[in-house]
Design a protein around this nucleic acid. Structure first.
Lengths: 198, 198, 198, 198
DNA sequence: CATGAATGAGGTTTCATTCAT
DNA sequence: CATGAATGAAACCTCATTCAT
């Protein structure tokens, strides 16, 4: 349920009970089991929604904007990241927590396969974005998949980092600014001739 | 207990029972509660050990190696990262999950304060590493705290990323290589005149 | 549960486990927690049943028998006491032990308020029984609330006294006789002109 | 330990741990077991101190003041009650709670015998106080033991009553006044010709 | 399709008691 | 005579899951 993820955000996966979720979703606990095999699957399904949204956005970048030059496409990637974050900041953070063996082991094989495909696909699509730049000899590093991994690692690192600052220090969340700077540094770091020094 | 984290590492936070830990530590369940108020606090104490180790390594960089020039110091930071990761990869990942508000509520105020201080300190110490470079006009961005945040975000992002790849795809963990590349890109990205192009 | 107090009666509050109660009630332990927040609250709820029964009996005296003269009404009070004792002797004794601050802290505020109201109400209703006698100038003491307090103190004192005699000396319980005499003395003691001397 | 009973008073028998007591007594838990076989025995020993004090006071009334007339002796009994209450209000209340089967069953036979004797003795001594009055034909009731039981029941009833009022309503404790009135009523109630009416 | 009362296994936690020092 | 760390049995309580309605 789209609304039930609010509970996960507040309490975290472990401390959230099925009854909490049912209450928030205005359903009965039993009803949840009509839609989800168990708690972990419910949690994962919510995570998958974000991965799906992310993939849709990435498809859009490659297909619709395929004629554009690289600098615009990395800008589009940045926009996609912001959108994904704003689509559901809470579940995004939760999804990053999903990546721990204990949760993944309880999933149905289909669901696990689903997650695998979605994440592999998003990496590959991201990697394609870098291929042009590499082809044109603009980049220092020439392994597009590595670059894709790193750019998503930066994304998740910044999201978690800003989130934990918010919780521990009660600070405001500067995600957008921090991510902007981080990606700028990344972009400068991968180019042979930094734009700024043109 | 230094030996009790083995159980956490194997089973993950949720699936680990106090009795598991007691058995591994060759103690009785009751004894654990002489040293830790509850399960969350035991877990957090283990996380703190990593933060403490990190801070010790960082102190070492600034104090002992203070005469060294910047390029060496960012190299030392990189080494510290690898060491922290190898000190206890699993607990490091768990620590990134610690930041869920509900877990933090069960901690004693002292422990919470302890965590706060350690993370703030590690950021500040890291920020100092960048100050020289900024003072010498070598860097584009001039906000050392922002750079410190980003470099740690990259670290945690890469760690989580590689861990999840390992779990989902059963791949080997390329942490060292990925982190190496990521930090190289980062370093190039922050300098005005990339060393490679000097 | 009306049937669950049997266990308390047999074993006493401390020695009774939630599982004992569950077994006697033919329920599972978890089910008990659907109805009672915790053990103290379950125990208190049983105590409240006696207070409620007492209040119902007292209401009956004032409302139904309001036309009767005082001597009959104090006789009715005596009957109420016997009935309350016979309603559940063991829980009555336990109720007198309820008043330990630590136990009261675990209760929900509503339950605590409930207990307060019931005890205050029973005092006030009892006090009303004495008001007529005072109005007609028959009594020496003219503070009805004080008399109400004393008559209930006598009740609880005699109940505890006879119970402890029963336990320590394995004697039979002479509650009825002792209470009869005690209340007769009380009644003679508060009147200006003792009936016997008329 | 004379000072350790404060803990019982605050928390009640069940909620008080041996460690609480040890801390209050500035001893270690282990040391308590040098002096007391177990928790119940520790608790009972504290109760016995009051019974002993009560018996000493009662002896004093009969032996030293044996030449006095009855009216003075019942006045002396009243004083003894106040003294006993002030000697240790807290343990007095606790002692009344002791009278529940669950606690008594764990006692050593010697201790139980001790308690039996002390309470039987105090009843008998009290009964003697009434014998003179009965012999002189002043009293309506002619069973001294019954009167003794009732007078102690009134005492314990009033003590518990005032104590519970204090806890539940946070009221001040009017023990002295209430007991004074209650005993006056009792005294008037047992005499054939009330003193007040000459 | 939905419910929600009931389950009960299993977790966390407590605490009277012991024993090596 | 005193300690207090350690015990471990047994308590309380939780919560994912089921199933009769």
């Amino acid at each position: 349920m789209v609304a039930a993820k609010r509970v996960f955000s507040e309490k975290g996966l472990n401390k959230t009970t099925m009854e909490d979720i049912a209450k928030e979703a205005e359903l009965s606990p039993g009803t949840l089991y009509l839609y989800f095999k168990n708690k972990d699957e419910l949690f994962s399904s919510l995570s998958i929604r974000i991965l799906q949204y992310l993939n849709i956005r990435l498809e859009h970048i490659t297909h619709v904007q395929s004629e554009k030059k690289f600098p615009d496409r990395i800008g589009a990637l940045k926009e996609a990241m912001f959108d994904v974050y704003e689509f559901d900041p809470v579940m995004l953070v939760n999804m990053f927590h999903l990546q721990s063996s204990e949760t993944l082991k309880n999933l149905t094989p289909e669901l696990l396969e689903n997650i695998k495909e979605l994440s592999q696909n998003s990496i590959q699509v991201t990697a394609k974005l870098f291929e042009d730049g590499i082809a044109e000899g603009e980049f220092i590093d020439e392994h597009p998949v590595a670059l894709a991994g790193i750019v998503w690692a930066i994304f998740s690192g910044v999201v978690l980092w800003e989130e934990s600052k918010r919780i521990i220090n009660d600070e405001k969340n500067y995600l957008r600014q921090t991510l902007e700077i981080a990606l700028e540094i990344f972009e400068r770091g991968i180019r042979k001739k930094p734009a700024a020094q043109g």
